[in-house]
């Protein structure tokens, strides 16, 4: 199960809406081993594409360096699909390289840049196997 606070959930949705029709991407870092997504980090989609996303390699390096220094790991890795459902594609599955992360997919296919409900779903992707999990949105992260 993914437990995420309302502010972070809203920030992910806002990023996806803003970047529509291109895919938006980013992470939420948290203390290593905590499974708590605490630090929202929006990333640039270096692919700048409606059907693909990729973190810029230099940004990726800086991000992991920062997380390493802070004792963090990527608790959530999110991206949006802008014309299809919020379910991992074959590409998503093949390229999922963080077995401990929650892979969050948001779909903006219904309302694009506008307000309105978006699909927000979370998965574990390990060794090519996808397992959907429940998402619980809380007002604030508690211990």
């Amino acid at each position: 199960m993914l437990t995420i606070d309302r502010a972070t959930y809203d920030a992910i949705v806002a990023h996806a809406r803003r970047d529509h029709p291109d895919e938006a991407c980013g992470i939420v870092a948290g203390p290593e081993g905590s499974d708590r997504p605490e630090r929202f980090v929006e990333m640039v989609n270096a692919a700048g594409s409606p059907t693909f996303y990729e973190f810029d390699s230099t940004d990726l390096f800086q991000l992991y360096k920062e997380m390493d220094e802070n004792g963090e790991e990527p608790v959530v890795i999110y991206h949006s699909h802008t014309a299809t459902e919020a379910y991992p594609s074959r590409t998503d599955i093949g390229l999922a390289m963080e077995p401990n992360a929650h892979y969050v997919l948001v779909s903006t296919r219904l309302h694009g840049n506008n307000e309105g409900p978006v699909e927000f779903r979370s998965y574990r992707i390990v060794d090519g196997e996808v397992t959907e999990e429940e998402v619980t949105v809380v007002d604030e992260q508690t211990d």
Partner: peptide, 12 residues
């Protein structure tokens, strides 16, 4: 030397 897998994917 640091090895990092790309963080990438996409709907296609």
């Amino acid at each position: 030397v640091v090895v990092l897998p790309a963080v990438a994917g996409g709907s296609r």
